[in-house]
Nucleic acid binder design. Structure first.
Lengths: 139, 139
DNA sequence: GTAACTGCAAAATATTTGCATCCTT
DNA sequence: AAGGATGCAAATATTTTGCAGTTAC
């Protein structure tokens, strides 16, 4: 019997392997939160080679299973894509919230990015909005 | 006689030195555009030590002369702060546009970030909005 | 069995730190 | 003159690449 995780991988034509399952599981467990590369190494229990994590993230990114989130600090963070995200093209039009207290990034699924009017000549393709502040857990 | 550049540095209680002037000049010349660390090394004519660039950017950031811009790719980019940005606290509430063709980042000073309504318990402090697409020069 | 994935080693990059020297005030 | 800034060397950290061994299908 296939689990949800297996299905996600198969849908993207990826082999179902231990590390992929573990990492995907972590993303699901984080539930909308964002993970940096370092988080993944820690939270999986340091079982994988760092290289495998890099490659797995890269693969997930290409297949559209996860997307990267822009942050003001250097860190690159990833979060699971919701339905509607096909490989490459994301309709990831919700707001990301970075907590300055706990450092966690949350996808605010309920908050859509509002429309903006761009100056003449600018052709938008993708919108990203990041709000920094104090999240509801650190309040 | 003091130039604009000298004034900016003095206002932030920084010594007026060659590298700082050069880097600041570059930011002014970029006119709202954003620079990645690599751009600065290139465009100044490779005159400085890489370390100096790192430290200068760090200093400018602390003094509030520049701010960092979040991007979806890993790169960290910086742009000049406008008046109203004191050290640490920026009122940098305009939209940033990243061109997928030429790679340049532009501050769209005329485009304000619209208000959004956050879920209960989230206390916003800073808003960042990044739009990716094709800029007016690459159109 | 074959193609794809992983882990190890090592290379290539990027960033930080220490310290002696030089420049700004 | 004194403190801060720079440049060099080197230590760290991060990310990428090659390849042989292993695993999924």
């Amino acid at each position: 019997m296939d689990t949800q995780i297996d299905n996600i991988l198969k849908r993207s034509q990826l082999s179902v392997t231990g590390s992929r399952k573990r990492i995907l599981e972590l993303f699901l467990a984080t539930n909308g939160g964002a993970l940096a590369h370092g988080d993944i190494e820690k939270k999986t229990g340091e079982k994988f080679d760092r290289v495998t994590v890099y490659r797995t993230l890269q693969t997930f990114l290409e297949k559209g299973i996860i997307h990267s989130i822009p942050t003001v600090d250097n860190s690159v963070r990833y979060a699971m894509c919701k339905e509607g995200c096909a490989g490459g093209h994301h309709h990831d039009n919700h707001v990301h919230f970075v907590c300055s207290a706990c450092g966690n990034t949350t996808c605010l699924e309920s908050v859509m990015i509002p429309e903006v009017r761009l100056p003449e000549g600018f052709q938008p393709e993708e919108f990203q909005m990041v709000i920094t502040g104090v999240c509801k857990d650190c309040h």
